[in-house]
Design a protein around this nucleic acid. Structure first.
Lengths: 118, 118
DNA sequence: GTATTTAGTCTTATTTTTCTGAGTAATTTA
DNA sequence: TAAATTACTCAGAAAAATAAGACTAAATAC
């Protein structure tokens, strides 16, 4: 059976099966981890949100994990941190434009997850 | 800002933001872990494949991890294990029909991953 | 001048995941 | 009879991820 018999090559042209770092593993690395999806989901659901509000909204998250995850999401360009130098300090997090292409894909994954749960 | 202002709710209706177990986390749990994607990718690329062939194809995987991952994928209904009682024993793994809906989604994630890498 | 709020930091555990590498049973090949 | 192949299993170690919880600085409110 040759490679061209398959319609759904989800990974890269000639380096399948994912023996090297591929875009798919990049993507899953970015949204992987215990708190990334809850954060994205909260920001998508409620729009720009302050640090402490996020912490209250996302049940069970600790400072350590929330800070770490937000920093990673920011570094990966999915989340924007905006600091307002008021007193008391206000810091808001929101999704970036980059995330717009991701959300429908997560929607599809959600549908698939529902199907497989049954 | 009300919830209905958002077009892309990727998670469940009224339990956002993912405070409970949601279909999206189910989906990511199934395809998460270091070796799941390489396995799915190899099986998608080459069709039904024997255990030792998989092990050779997927660089760096150990018996422990390959067996564990294959068992989980089988339990989640993504991979089918077929045993032929020849001598020497032949065991083949292949993707199930269930996986067909998943592959295009992974394709989309791959495209997104490529974009974000640049 | 004491307490509170905000957005975190820091250090030390604990848990989870992954790796290492040897071992196994059944059978065929040399 | 020895070596090789197949599809694994298993115990222990190392590495990575996550958790717990105390602590901080700057400022305002009481």
């Amino acid at each position: 059976m040759s490679a061209s018999d398959h319609l759904n090559h989800f990974c890269s042209e000639n380096i399948c099966p994912c023996q090297e770092k591929c875009p798919l593993s990049t993507a899953l690395g970015i949204i992987g981890g215990k708190w990334k999806i809850p954060i994205l989901c909260a920001l998508n659901y409620d729009g720009p949100t302050r640090y402490n509000a996020l912490r209250k909204k996302i049940k069970g998250v600790t400072n350590t994990m929330l800070v770490t995850s937000l920093k990673e999401l920011e570094a990966d360009g999915l989340v924007l941190r905006t600091q307002y130098n008021e007193m008391p300090l206000r810091v808001e997090y929101k999704l970036t434009e980059n995330t717009n292409n991701l959300l429908p894909i997560l929607g599809n994954l959600t549908v698939w997850g529902k199907e497989i749960e049954n």
